[in-house]
Measured scan of single mutants.
Amino acid sequence: MQRVNMIMAESPGLITICLLGYLLSAECTVFLDHENANKILNRPKRYNSGKLEEFVQGNLERECMEEKCSFEEAREVFENTERTTEFWKQYVDGDQCESNPCLNGGSCKDDINSYECWCPFGFEGKNCELDVTCNIKNGRCEQFCKNSADNKVVCSCTEGYRLAENQKSCEPAVPFPCGRVSVSQTSKLTRAETVFPDVDYVNSTEAETILDNITQSTQSFNDFTRVVGGEDAKPGQFPWQVVLNGKVDAFCGGSIVNEKWIVTAAHCVETGVKITVVAGEHNIEETEHTEQKRNVIRIIPHHNYNAAINKYNHDIALLELDEPLVLNSYVTPICIADKEYTNIFLKFGSGYVSGWGRVFHKGRSALVLQYLRVPLVDRATCLRSTKFTIYNNMFCAGFHEGGRDSCQGDSGGPHVTEVEGTSFLTGIISWGEECAMKGKYGIYTKVSRYVNWIKEKTKLT
């Protein structure tokens, strides 16, 4: 034993070699072989497995989906700052455009905790909710729209109204504003409101030439003092309507412009014939205590009207009353817009006519005020429907199939267009061939041609 100890002390290297040989010859039971080890760690190889990531292109799944990435790591994937920024906006807080917040056709661009709407022409605001041009839906104005110097929408209202708090709607500024039905039992019968379409306001006024200088022999019209197929109006439903009495009662109609003036057809009036105007009328054979009678003290036909040349060209006249009318729910003026808007309103496509005229061709006159909704007829169809001249200051309205029309005794009465609950004068009943005849239409004086003249002559002093 002493000898062994001496050998170990003198030859430590020998001992180490012996131990190493023993270990190498022993069977290893701690580690699995290569094949079995792979069965336990069965993990798919990654895209760049075996390579240094710093030297390969980034992978979106590896960089940002398996674990949260930084902007720089995302930049490695896209290799483009702009594309990385677009991805980053949604990656950080989701897609803010998912709810489609942009209105009126706006395009949404996502941002971090926010979004941006790219608005089409005519709109602005956070969600493109603000109209900035009158060309689109009248700028959301209830009545009139004008573009300011910086191309912003400025709404306005006709006389007797003021802008509401929203700067879009119009509200009454006087007790009985024009064009409004205020009798409670008839307010439910107000005709369907007309909503502004998209309009090209630059070209809204037709490029028409008034044929002022045409000389033409007097034409022989049949029954051209021209509501057939209409309905009984309720008291106060058309408070701007008046009836004219002269040699015979209810020979023509008219509309209240203001307390002192009536507008009617020029062919209705004769110099030297006494005319009485009755406002607030409903049943011409009954006294309903809503009527107001006034005498006409002055007749002003349009300066281009000449019955000797043509009885229905420039067929418009103004009547001055001896005493002002007292405005109330049964006696209310009709609204008159400017030339541009009167023309736009007419193009809405349908209007209402009213009167006490004959209820059928050569038949009896109506006792109760009649009204009828009539569609506008395109000019080409209008011209083809008659052998008589249709001037540019006239328009056609009615039904091709016949059966409904204005008729004798309705002449001078109103053709009105309702705009968001307020009625505007767009025409004056003038003439036609018979009444409600198939293929024939009622012919009306186009008020847009005469609004400046009306307003100039009827100013209240």
Rank of each mutant, 00 (worst) to 15 (best):
L52T: 15
S11L: 12
Y391L: 11
L383Y: 10
E270N: 13
G13N: 10
D198A: 15
V195L: 13
I210K: 07
N452S: 15
Q143G: 01
Y22T: 08
C335R: 01
I15Y: 06
F399C: 06
D150S: 12
K347W: 04
S148N: 12
C69Y: 04
W431T: 08
C335D: 01
S406W: 15
I454P: 00
C117V: 00
A308D: 13
T271L: 14
C119N: 01
C335E: 00
L41R: 09
E53T: 09
V243W: 09
L244G: 01
M437F: 14
N306V: 07
T287A: 15
T287V: 11
P172Y: 05
P301I: 09
C18H: 04
C170M: 00
I7R: 14
N147L: 14
S49D: 15
S99D: 10
H415P: 00
E73S: 09
M8H: 13
S11K: 15
E98T: 13
P414V: 11
T84E: 08
L367R: 15
V181K: 06
F144L: 04
A37D: 11
D33T: 10
E401A: 15
A337P: 03
V331S: 03
V377I: 12
I7Y: 10
S430R: 03
N59M: 06
I284W: 09
C335A: 00
D110S: 15
V153M: 12
S385T: 11
E286K: 11
R364E: 13
E35F: 08
T85P: 09
E281K: 13
L369P: 14
V447Q: 00
L244N: 01
W356R: 09
C28I: 02
Y201E: 11
C396K: 02
N42W: 06
H289N: 14
G412P: 13
E66Y: 05
R62H: 12
F348Y: 15
W240S: 00
A37C: 04
A397E: 01
N222F: 11
I256W: 01
Q185G: 15
L189Y: 11
E116F: 02
C268Q: 01
G272R: 12
C268T: 00
L369D: 03
R294F: 00
I454E: 00
S169N: 13
V326H: 11
M6A: 14
V195H: 13
M8S: 14
K152P: 07
D322R: 03
L189P: 10
I300R: 03
E124V: 03
R83A: 14
I210E: 13
A192T: 15
T84Q: 08
T426F: 01
P301R: 10
G357I: 07
C119D: 01
Y47Q: 11
N48I: 05
W453S: 00
R162W: 06
I284C: 04
R180L: 06
G398D: 03
T264F: 02
R384T: 13
L211C: 09
V374D: 01
Q90Y: 10
G160A: 02
C134E: 03
P175S: 11
D378P: 11
V331N: 02
Q241Y: 11
A317W: 00
I40W: 06
S11Y: 07
G122C: 00
D200Y: 05
G363M: 08
T186G: 11
Y330K: 05
V242M: 01
N343A: 07
G413T: 07
C170R: 01
E73W: 04
V257M: 03
T332K: 07
G125S: 02
A164S: 06
G363W: 05
S423L: 09
C134I: 03
R298K: 13
E10P: 13
V447I: 11
H282I: 08
C178I: 01
A207K: 13
D95K: 15
K293W: 11
D223Y: 06
V451F: 03
E270F: 08
S448F: 02
N343E: 15
L32K: 11
C141M: 00
M394V: 10
V92G: 15
E129H: 05
N245G: 06
E116N: 03
C155R: 01
R3H: 09
D131T: 07
C155S: 01
S220I: 14
D131S: 13
S49N: 14
E208L: 12
A192K: 12
L14R: 03
R449E: 11
E285R: 12
Q167N: 09
F71Y: 08
F251D: 03
D131Y: 08
C268P: 00
I336S: 00
L24S: 04
S448Y: 03
F395D: 01
K339E: 12
T16G: 11
V277A: 06
Y201I: 14
H361L: 11
G254H: 00
N147C: 06
N328F: 00
H282L: 12
H34V: 10
F176N: 07
C178R: 01
E67S: 07
Y391S: 13
P44L: 10
K347G: 13
N245D: 06
I214M: 08
T209G: 14
N283L: 10
C268A: 01
E286V: 09
S217C: 06
P172M: 06
P172A: 11
Y371S: 10
F348C: 07
Q185N: 09
R379G: 05
E401M: 10
W356M: 08
V447F: 01
C108D: 00
T194G: 11
A380P: 10
E53K: 08
M8R: 15
G230P: 10
H34K: 12
H415K: 01
G432E: 09
I443M: 10
W431P: 06
L321S: 01
I334D: 00
S406Q: 11
V353T: 09
H302L: 01
L14H: 03
G58Q: 05
T158Y: 04
R162Q: 08
F31W: 10
K387R: 12
S385K: 13
T194H: 14
E418P: 11
E124F: 04
R404Q: 06
A266T: 01
K109E: 06
